[in-house]
Design a protein around this nucleic acid. Structure first.
Length: 335
DNA sequence: TAATTATGACGAC
DNA sequence: TCGTCCTAATTAC
C-alpha cells in the first residue's frame, strides 16, 4: 500500500528512535516467532529504505556478525510506532525546507487542510503529548498513549521494543531475517531510488532501461527493477503530469522525456517524504491547491477519478485494468 | 453483518 | 491472465 515515500519515512523513524538501541523482539501474532527469536536482545545498528523495502540491521555488539530484517508492506501492511516517537520536530523542519525550496502551495495547502481537521498527516500535531502512537501506512495518524508499552492490537507480526519506543508491524507481504549477502542480492534486483542514489548515474540508468524496452511506460513505471518505489498512485500522477499516454512504448520515448519523468519522480518523492502525503498537484496555485486538499478524494489529477471530469480539460477520466492494477488517465490530455 | 476495497508482488498455467 | 497471500477500514445491505 505505501509507496516509496512512506518507507523512507519509516526508515527515518527507526534511525531516530531505534538505531543504537537494544530491542526486545517478539511476534505477538506468532507467525514470526522464530525470526523474532533470532533478533531478540540485539541492537539495531542501521535502517535503510530502498524503493518499497525496508532493511533493518541488527547486531549483538560492535564486532558481532550482522543480521538484517527485510520488510515489504505489500498492499496493506503498516508499521505502528508508539512511545517517544513523535514526528513533530522533523515535520516542522520539513515545512521549513519546503518553504525554502519554493514549492509553491505545499505549505499553505497542508495547513489549510489541517485546520479543517480532515487531514491524516502529522503536521498539525505540534504540542502533542510526548508519548504518542503513530501509525505509518497509507495515512499517518497520531493519538495519545495511555500506557507503555501499549498492548498489541490486531495481527502484530513483529514487535520491536526499546525502553522508550515500540514498533509494531502488521500485514506485511514480506518479513524475513537475512544475511548481509542476501540483503545485497535483494537490493541488486531493484532499480534506482532517487533517495538512495540521486546522482546522474541513476537518471542515466533509468533512462536507458526505459528506452530499451517496448513495454508501455505505464507498466515500466510500476516495474521495481526499472525504478524502485513508484506505486499505482504515483504512476498515474506522473504520467498525467508528463501528459504521457500510458500505452506509449518505452523505446519510443525521447531521451529528454524519459529524463523528465525521472526528475519529476525525484521531485514528488521528496515532497512525499517531507510531508508524509502523496502531494502531486504542487503546480496548482496555492489557493486552488488548498481547496483541492480539503477534500479527501480531491488530491490527485487522475488517481481514483474514473468517470470524473479531468481537472484540466473536462474529459472523463478513463479507467482500465493493466497488469491487475487500476490505471487512471485522461484520454485527451494524455493522448 | 457481509462485501468490497486498497498506494504489491509472486508463482502457476 | 489468474489465483494467492497478508489485514483493516469503509461501504453496502
Amino acid at each position: 500500500m505505501p509507496e516509496g515515500h512512506s518507507v523512507h519515512r519509516i526508515a527515518r523513524q527507526f534511525e531516530a528512535h531505534f538505531v543504537g538501541h537494544r530491542v526486545t523482539a517478539s511476534s505477538p501474532q506468532g507467525r514470526f516467532a522464530a525470526g523474532a527469536a533470532e533478533l531478540d536482545g540485539l541492537t539495531v545498528t542501521d535502517a535503510q529504505a530502498v524503493g518499497k523495502q525496508l532493511f533493518l540491521e541488527f547486531a549483538a555488539d560492535e564486532s558481532a556478525p550482522r543480521k538484517w530484517l527485510r520488510v515489504h508492506l505489500g498492499i496493506y501492511g503498516a508499521w505502528d510506532f508508539a512511545g517517544d516517537v513523535s514526528m513533530d520536530a522533523s515535520a516542522a523542519a520539513a515545512r521549513g525546507r519546503i518553504g525554502q525550496t519554493g514549492m509553491k502551495g505545499v505549505d499553505a495547502a497542508t495547513q489549510g487542510a489541517g485546520t479543517r481537521g480532515e487531514n491524516e498527516d502529522s503536521l498539525a500535531s505540534i504540542g502533542a503529548p510526548r508519548r504518542t502512537r503513530l501509525r505509518m501506512a497509507e495515512t499517518e495518524k497520531e493519538t495519545d498513549l495511555t500506557e507503555f508499552p501499549p498492548p498489541p492490537v490486531g495481527q502484530v507480526r513483529v514487535r520491536l521494543l526499546t525502553d522508550t519506543a515500540v514498533a509494531d508491524l502488521r500485514g506485511p507481504t514480506a518479513c524475513e531475517v537475512l544475511l548481509p549477502e542476501e540483503v545485497a542480492f535483494a537490493i541488486a534486483k531493484l532499480g534506482p531510488d532517487p533517495l538512495v542514489d540521486g546522482g546522474q548515474a541513476s537518471e542515466d540508468r533509468f533512462t536507458e532501461t526505459v528506452r530499451a524496452k517496448r513495454t508501455p511506460i505505464g507498466l515500466l513505471l510500476m516495474d521495481q527493477s526499472v525504478v524502485a518505489g513508484i506505486g499505482n498512485v504515483y504512476r498515474a500522477e506522473l504520467l498525467f503530469r508528463a501528459r504521457l499516454n500510458p500505452h506509449t512504448p518505452g523505446n519510443t520515448l525521447p531521451d529528454d522525456v524519459a529524463r523528465a519523468l525521472w526528475r519529476d519522480w525525484t521531485h514528488l518523492l521528496n515532497i512525499g517524504v517531507q510531508t508524509g502525503q502523496m502531494l502531486t498537484m504542487d503546480d496548482l496555485d496555492p489557493e486552488a491547491y488548498a481547496r483541492a486538499l480539503a477534500h479527501r478524494d480531491d488530491r490527485h489529477w487522475v488517481y481514483h477519478r474514473a468517470g470524473l471530469p479531468c481537472r484540466v480539460c473536462g474529459t472523463h477520466i478513463a479507467l482500465e485494468i493493466a497488469a491487475a492494477r487500476k490505471l487512471y488517465w485522461c484520454p485527451s490530455c494524455q493522448a
